[in-house]
Design a protein around this nucleic acid. Structure first.
Lengths: 200, 200
DNA sequence: ACCTGAACACCGTTCAAGT
DNA sequence: ACCTGAACACCGTTCAAGT
């Protein structure tokens, strides 16, 4: 093995990864608004034009960041899912995991939901989104198969449930709901979702 | 009356309003990303530093824009509300109105929900938000008083309902749901909200 | 009171040139 | 193949000076 000199080598090695890592730290510490390619380049110790080799433009970096976000969220949700549990606690666990992710990654989640990356569609992104939604899909499909929830278009049921969870997550991001209040209300939230607002 | 010269007068007259109007058009036509104070100034025919007299900084203009958004949304919701209607159609009408606003004002709605304007709190904004939420509040409070929906913390019920509506609106903004699909699903959405996912 | 013009410190993106 | 340096066309914000 050859000893590397103390000075930074001409080639970074894994600039792409380094940029994404730095970007996510900035996102978390200073918000989306103060995420600049030039500053990222500075942090990583590379010229301001270097990121251009790895990301076509700023949006491409944001897309890549969103992709890692979906991949991580999908893993978090899959891990929280326990098919052995009865419907209500199973759904509650999923909701708790999602809200936890939203609390810990508010800015990233906002990026993931940004109405920006429709045209590219990037196969990978579609897969990651699919996997993210998958956990909820399975819970509702299982429940429907067992007759534990009403019949009807699974898409529609999925939409209602997903929208409710996402709505709460967004309320947290927007600062209209404290993380504590959100987590404290999860049980009630899922209960209403399952049993409805009308009395039984 | 003195005839005004053909050349633009030194004082604009109502620069503040003109900037907000131009800003909303840009928002609708080209998106939040391409909203620049300098371009706004150009469109309105004023020097690039002029907006600074009326808005402390760019965020202040965005806040003012969000405020007008809430005021308009509050009016739309209040107009759609019909206390004479039974609970389910009354709630459906509100949902339809909110989703309609979301469809027609996607970028503006995103701005309204942006997790930016927490510190200022600006009395006016708080009032506008309050009035926006008011319509839903009244529907649920009335229903609860009549025993048409379950007892419990109104805040919590409001949260679930509001989150669901907002979640769907955000799905539309994000492009994950077409406006047509959303509007077609409103009845089912409200029905699930009232009756729950579990069979009765 | 309201606006201008110049100045400052930033951006993102491109492209010849270097290693 | 990967990166640099200079250049270009933008930004937001500030501030003396003009009307």
């Amino acid at each position: 093995m050859v000893r590397m000199p103390e000075t930074r080598p001409y080639h970074h090695g894994d600039l792409r990864t380094a940029l994404l890592t730095a970007a996510e730290r900035t996102l978390r510490e200073k918000g989306t608004a103060s995420l600049s390619l030039r500053e990222l380049a500075r942090e990583v110790g590379v010229s301001h034009a270097a990121p251009g080799r790895h990301f076509k433009d700023k949006q491409a970096l944001l897309n890549a960041l969103a992709l890692t976000g979906f991949e991580r969220l999908a893993r978090v949700l899959a891990a929280a899912e326990d098919p052995a549990l009865p419907l209500e606690p199973r759904l509650t666990a999923l909701a708790r995991a999602y809200l936890g992710f939203a609390i810990d990654n508010a800015e990233l989640l906002e990026l993931m939901y940004a109405r920006k990356h429709e045209p590219d569609a990037s196969e990978q992104m579609a897969v990651a989104v699919e996997q993210t939604i998958g956990s909820l899909d399975r819970i509702l499909a299982d429940a429907q198969r067992r007759g534990e929830i009403i019949e009807g278009d699974p898409e529609q049921l999925n939409l209602v449930t997903g929208a409710t969870l996402h709505g709460v997550a967004d309320f947290i991001s927007a600062g209209w709901l404290t993380p504590e209040a959100a987590l404290a209300g999860v049980d009630g939230l899922v209960h209403v979702l399952l049993h409805g607002l009308k009395p039984r």
